[in-house]
Design a protein around this nucleic acid. Structure first.
Lengths: 239, 239
DNA sequence: CCCCGGGATTTTGTATGCTGCGGGCAATCG
DNA sequence: CGATTGCCCGCAGCATACAAAATCCCGGGG
């Protein structure tokens, strides 16, 4: 029934809503550092820059606000969110809790193919470490965590973790490099626990992993001098 | 220096943005059941009903979508979200995890006043049970959980839990009544664990409490016949 | 009797115009 | 010379207008 035209009947014909494109574009600008924390985002400027009207930009900004990427001061507009150390720590705590539960559930659900997928991602990650390829390390890390969460079979968890993880990645910045080797050893432990179908061990592995990551972040921001707002992140190296 | 006038320097009440009022109004309509799950929300109708233009309504709908209250099908508009049993279960799992961590942290942070506040809420809850006052029971329950979460000192946690809890309350409906007595006994355990400053016991109490609540919900929806969508909730009793 | 097409209607998506508030600047007064 | 005040400009918030898409209804044909 869906095919009305004789064409390939794929329902891709719908152009992605402009607000979504705008959202992605602005989010990219924030994550890439093109828009710095605290910067005032003027609707009109963004609209002109993206070649659309203010309306989709407004809706994109509302969305970004709900995800914690921008602060929307009433009557004054949108500003790129400036993360504080406390907030990052709190976020890392939540991430740890959610991912630990994901790992516990994943251990009970993962199929043989799932395990193979995880192992493949681990190999990619290790290769990236040996090649000192930071972007690939970050990508593999994100893939692994996303895969584990997906295997939990809990869609609500997937949503929340995806949201939290992206912001964690933003805050993280350069931590990944320093922790590269250790991190992937921990990942391997986790994957083996999942392969063994042992929820307790899997959860413990994930808890330890996220907790060490959190400690690493705290040390990092501490040595970078007191209240290291995200402005300090960019001065180091790109994400 | 801050005092310019002799008065208490209250900052002028800024009129609440219309999108926020619209958001609250629509959310009330959903929670109260005036708008039933699956119902198509026409922007224009809402705008007329609320006496505003479509713009604030649109923004409110986007916001509600992000909180999971409505589904926004592109090119087709907004529909009140229809929760499934699986989704409710997943949400309850997540709630359990987040609240358990809240309880653990709260046990380490709560002051004497905090404990007294918790005990006061417990008394209110028990009174409501004895009076068989369901709305008061629900209110006290929400207050208790909110208070515990707040005492965790983790703002990110507070946000997420607030979001999850409101939807849980919606799904819950009439479960509260059947579980009333037991539930408040478990609450009392929790409060005493927090009063003792014992994170492990506090976390365990909360875990058990949320897990029992989840079981109760599952039994409830099972006996109510297979796929009890929220449409079945309202036919029972108001929230 | 059921299925299929076409046009009218409804509804979303996007653009633009208008109003009021806030901030910055300069002229004026003490 | 410094503080205050009035003015101007820019931007957010809201409303309205227009265009495109989907749905619905109706009539015709198999």
């Amino acid at each position: 029934m869906p095919e009305s035209t004789g064409t390939t009947a794929r329902r891709i014909s719908r152009p992605v809503p402009l607000r979504e494109s705008a959202h992605n574009a602005i989010l990219d600008m924030i994550v890439s550092g093109e828009l710095q924390p605290g910067q005032h985002l003027v609707e009109n400027e963004l609209a002109v820059a993206l070649g659309v009207s203010r309306q989709p930009v407004r809706e994109a900004l509302q969305w970004l606000k709900n995800d914690g990427w921008v602060d929307l001061r009433p009557g004054q507009g949108a500003f790129v969110h400036s993360p504080t150390v406390e907030e990052a720590d709190q976020l890392l705590v939540v991430r740890g809790v959610l991912e630990t539960e994901s790992a516990r559930l994943a251990a009970g659900n993962a199929t043989a193919e799932d395990v193979e997928e995880l192992r493949a991602i681990c190999r990619r990650g290790l290769a990236a470490v040996e090649a000192d390829d930071v972007p690939a390390m970050i990508a593999a890390n994100a893939d692994l965590h996303a895969a584990v969460t997906r295997m939990s079979g809990n869609d609500v968890l997937v949503d929340l973790v995806a949201q939290v993880d992206r912001r964690v990645s933003w805050y993280h910045g350069s931590v990944a490099r320093r922790r590269g080797g250790r991190s992937w050893a921990e990942h391997a432990d986790l994957v083996e626990a999942i392969a063994a179908g042992d929820p307790t061990r899997s959860a413990a592995a994930m808890r330890q992993h996220t907790e060490l990551t959190r400690r690493s972040y705290l040390e990092h921001s501490a040595e970078r001098g007191g209240a290291a707002t995200a402005a300090g992140l960019r001065s180091d190296e790109a994400i």
